[in-house]
Amino acid sequence: MRSEHEARLIEALQRGLPLVPRPYAALAARVGLTETGVIELIQSLQNEAVIKRFGVIVRHHELGYCANAMVVWNVPDRQVTELGTRIARLDYVTLCYRRARSLPQWPYNLYCMIHGRDRMRVRERISELIDTCGLQGVPHEVLFSCRRFKQRGARYSSVVPAFKRVVGA
């Protein structure tokens, strides 16, 4: 059974875990559940991967990861899963997605993010990645960025209807 408690918990939790010794009890008081109820709900949200990760969310620019490259590849569709899986295994790759192409202007279908302290280091890693993953000759482009206009993270202010639609089925 899904409830409004869950939606309220999702909303209360997204601002962050209360920094007190018993944060789940503090949340419970806010959303009208018991501490055990909150703990069980969070565990089930993690099991369903509604919560992807739980812990510190870092502002990577402040950690000196100033060079951020999005590398886009045009790989044959039948190889995309294998190559994506291989690329994602490298420890300097922070995200790896398959995305829709936008033909003819944008033929790329595999994206990975590589963060590093400077562009030279990031470029070395890209060459290493090409060798390691057998991507020689695969069309690709490197899009560097060091300018961020906006980073707020996704916010969900009224998740009740949306949440029910997805997990209430």
Partner: peptide, 29 residues
């Protein structure tokens, strides 16, 4: 607790808590 609070205050951390999967919440991404 004190250290997490300080890392949040000085902006090293944006948040301490969950990272949600937008599509599984029912949203678009």
């Amino acid at each position: 607790l004190e250290r997490i609070e300080r890392l949040l205050d000085d902006g090293t951390l944006t948040r301490f808590g969950p990272m949600y999967h937008a599509e599984r919440l029912g949203g678009g991404l």
